[in-house]
Amino acid sequence: MRKYIVRRLIISVITVWLIATSCFFLLRTLPGNPFQTTSLLSAEMVDRMMHYYGLDRPLWDQYVTYMQNLLRGNFGYSLKYAGQSVNGIIASTFPISAQLGLQAYFLSIPLGFLFGIVAARCRGKAVDYGLVGFSVLGVSVPVFILAAMLQYVFAIRLKWLPVAQWKSFQHTILPTVTLAFSSIAGRTRSMRTFMLEIVNEDYIKTAKAKGLSKYRVVWSHQIRNAVIPMIPTMGMEIVGMLMGSFVVEQIFAIPGIGNQFVTSIQNLDYTMTLGLTVFFGVFVVAANFIVDIVYGIVDPRIRVR
């Protein structure tokens, strides 16, 4: 087991390095430059700016400098938000997206599992159809429509909650629900599917034949085994939620990191995009690492290769 962990660890570090390297070079293949996105500058001025930020040096030279800084945990300065360090921007925007993501995640886990189990156990009954209907709604309504509708009903019409911004707990309710909605729906659906898939497995039959109570069969055999295939996606999902959602952050005017991710690419803010990519690369790789370890423990077949 220790050997397995060490090997996974080395692989993870190499993965992060590969992410940084490939992203660094991929970004530079995009045409345009980061200095003309807020105003048009003459070619001369652009050259001067490129020189000021060291972007006129040979690419490999820039790469070496970047990697040296990266090793020290320094992501450099944003090219669009002059004077703002990428570390600083991450430090101010990530906690907000993370809070929103975690709230949504922890709202979606119990509800998703619960709905999935209920639907599977009541297969073919009204409850099942109701929950299936809900889960279809969750995946068939685009987020921007859902956000607009929730905002319209609860903030504009009923005035129960504020329209937008990120200030207090009330302000977080609508974006959290919006973000969690499709995740609840998706989880309901997967849970229901997995539950039904294993209902005829031999071990369930055995358990039934042994005369276990229905509750025990469902709880200790069916649910547990249905959850296993969902573990890897759950790991990725939490990372996805921490990364913030561009649409939700736009509509609810939340100063999160998802917004930065999209705009930095649009603005060709190389250092910013790279910094965010590496930052999340570390997250994803760490999440995968943990998932692999957990999987290795849960399912020994994976470990022994």
Binding site: T15, I19, S22, C23, L26, V262, I265, T277
Partner: peptide, 9 residues
């Protein structure tokens, strides 16, 4: 590596 690079790129 591939999944970590922003899809927008």
């Amino acid at each position: 590596v591939g999944v970590c690079i922003p899809e927008l790129i």
